[in-house]
Design a protein around this nucleic acid. Structure first.
Length: 315
DNA sequence: CGGCTTTGACCTGCGC
DNA sequence: GCGCAGGTCAAAGCCG
């Protein structure tokens, strides 16, 4: 895999569900473990490209397009792609955007109003608004890598070990449920997350993380029992045998009961109402349209807007 | 009183 | 240019 691309941890389940593959470039095989309990979708990308080593696995772009070619897979191995996880930000990403985290933060709208006005004044004194606008357009902000996953939960805000401050809430179009915006409470930590409940299946909470924590998990406050009462499904599993230079942010190590996993049916189709692949058995498939977070996630990755994506719930 | 949520206003990007 | 939607700000209020 080229250094240009993010490192990916790629989990796929097989029909008999007794194998789990995890790859970051070269394929590494992990025995069946709790790690097939992730469901991630990511828009972390470099130059709009996002892929696995095409010689080993399907091209990630094709995967998102639903046009991945699985012909090289044996029938028994055709994956019900279950989870995709974007890992480290490659060094080359920094050169594409801002040169420092603080600058990135400013570009990303972290300036408060006072700072914004000040910056406007600084920028605007000698130059016209048009120029400022053009400049801003040129410096199109580079989004932090973002990860999203879906959890079957009655609780909206799942405890992930970090402290969060809610900074906004917005009504979501076509959804009775609002979207909540949180920022990591730790000073200078750029991580944000968004929570919204799926209106397709109201028992599903969609969580999207943006950025990476620059600190360890804070110690629980006095009287903070969240961790102590966290259900087993929320506990952080032991790390797999990842290679030295691989990272796996602990906040993403949230187990989701396997029967609640979402699955992407990797067959090549543009028909939203197509029949699921027969190799995936004993599943009820629900339509999962891409509004809200998912829509945003996929819009900002490489999926054409008019293309259908088929998501299904494994039950 | 500190930390957090709520919520209306504001900013920004995008499509028409 | 306008309107819409997403995202953010910040003052006010709540709570332990």
């Amino acid at each position: 895999m080229s250094e240009e691309f993010n490192r990916f941890y790629y989990h796929q389940t097989f029909p008999d569900d007794d194998q789990l593959r995890n790859t970051s470039g070269g394929a590494a095989t992990f025995p069946h473990s709790g790690y097939n309990t992730f469901t991630f979708y990511t828009d972390s990308s470099v130059n709009g490209q996002q892929m696995f080593d095409p010689t080993s696995y399907v091209n990630f772009t094709d995967f998102l397009h639903g046009s991945a070619d699985y012909s090289s897979f044996k029938d028994s191995e055709k994956p019900a792609v279950e989870a995709v996880y974007g890992g480290e930000i490659p060094a080359t990403l920094n050169s594409l955007g801002s040169s420092s985290a603080s600058e990135a933060a400013e570009d990303d709208g972290y300036l408060n109003k006072g700072k914004k006005k000040k910056k406007m004044a600084e920028d605007g004194e000698g130059s016209s608004k048009k120029e400022v606008k053009a400049k801003k357009k040129k410096e199109k902000k580079q989004r932090e890598p973002r990860f999203a996953f879906m959890t079957k939960s009655e609780v909206d805000h799942l405890d992930d070990g970090y402290r969060w401050r809610k900074y906004g809430q917005k009504a979501v179009k076509n959804s009775p449920y609002p979207r909540s915006y949180y920022r990591c409470s730790t000073e200078k930590c750029p991580v944000k997350k968004r929570l919204e409940r799926s209106f397709i299946d109201t028992s599903i909470v969609i969580t999207a993380y943006e950025g990476q924590h620059n600190h360890n998990q804070p110690a629980p406050r006095r009287g903070d029992m969240a961790g102590m009462f966290a259900p087993p499904s929320m506990l952080v599993p032991p790390l797999p045998q990842l290679q030295e230079n691989q990272s796996f942010p602990p906040e993403l190590l949230v187990q989701i009961p396997h029967q609640h996993l979402y699955s992407y049916n990797g067959s090549s189709t543009n028909n939203l109402y197509h029949q699921p692949q027969t190799l995936i058995q004993h599943q009820q498939f629900h339509q999962f349209t891409d509004h809200g977070l998912l829509q945003d996630i996929y819009n900002s990755s490489c999926v054409p807007k008019q293309q259908h994506r088929d998501f299904h719930i494994l039950q």
